Amino acid sequence: MGLARSSYYERPRSKAQADEPVIEVLNQVVAKNGRWGFRLCFDWMRNQGYEWNHKRVWRVYKEMGLNLPRRTKKRIPKMPRVPLVAPTEANSMWALDFMYDTLHYGRPFRTLNVIDE
């Protein structure tokens, strides 16, 4: 026949075409639940009966830019350092401290120490 061997086979679909159903479902999930991460989205999709591989869904999830940044701890603003004020007379400032220890034979005891600064 004189045909090239490459013409016998069906051309593979592009990844964008193959991933369209995954993209549609992910858009639905994210529109409904915006703060869900990948794992919740994937588990929801599995519960709905979609049988896509988690690696495929993760690849599409990342390509769509849906992977959320990790939440960081809130930083406390730095306060200016203020030197401690030394007491001027007796009985104006007291310090309390609880201490715990054990005796030689194992019996525990606790004390409350009160100190006049």
Score class of each variant (00 low, 15 high):
Glu63Val: 07
Ser7Met: 09
Pro69Thr: 01
Glu117Ser: 09
Pro80Met: 06
Gly65Asn: 01
Met64Asp: 05
Val85Asp: 10
Arg39Asp: 13
Val60Phe: 02
Leu3Asn: 08
Leu40Lys: 15
Glu24Trp: 11
Thr88Tyr: 12
Met1Phe: 07
Leu66His: 00
Asp19Ala: 06
Leu96Asp: 14
Ile23Tyr: 09
Ala16Gly: 08
Asp101Trp: 03
Gly34Ala: 13
Ala90Lys: 15
Val82Cys: 09
Arg46Ala: 11
Asp19Gln: 07
His104Ser: 13
Ile76Lys: 15
Lys73Val: 03
Arg71Ile: 06
Val57Cys: 00
Phe109Pro: 01
Val114Asp: 05
Met45Tyr: 03
Arg59Gln: 09
Glu89Trp: 11
Val22Ser: 00
Met79Arg: 15
Met1Arg: 10
Val25Ile: 08
Gly65Tyr: 03
Val82Ala: 09
Arg5Phe: 11
Tyr61Asp: 03
Arg35Leu: 12
Pro21Lys: 02
Val30Tyr: 08
Pro83Lys: 04
Phe38Ile: 01
Lys32Arg: 15
Met64Ala: 05
Met99Arg: 07
Pro108Asn: 06
Arg56Ala: 01
Asp43Ser: 11
Leu26Glu: 00
Val85Trp: 11
Pro12Gln: 13
Ser14Ala: 12
Asp97Thr: 01
Ile76His: 12
Met79Leu: 14
Ala16Met: 09
Val29Thr: 02
Ala95Glu: 13
Pro80His: 07
Asn113Pro: 00
Arg110Glu: 05
Ala16Thr: 07
Asp43Arg: 12
Tyr105Ala: 12
Tyr50Lys: 01
Arg107Cys: 05
Ile23Thr: 03
Arg13Ala: 12
Ser14Gly: 11
Trp52Ile: 00
Asp116Val: 00
Arg13Lys: 14
Val25Asp: 06
Pro87Thr: 02
Val25Phe: 09
Phe98Glu: 07
Val29Gly: 02
Asn33Ile: 02
Pro77Thr: 04
Val82Lys: 11
Met1His: 11
Arg11Asp: 04
Tyr9Leu: 08
Gln28Lys: 10
Glu51Met: 13
Lys74Thr: 03
Trp44Lys: 15
Asp19Met: 04
Phe42Cys: 02
Met45Gly: 00
Glu10Ser: 14
Arg56Asn: 04
Phe98Thr: 01
Glu51Ser: 15
Thr72Phe: 15
Tyr105Phe: 15
Gln48Ile: 04
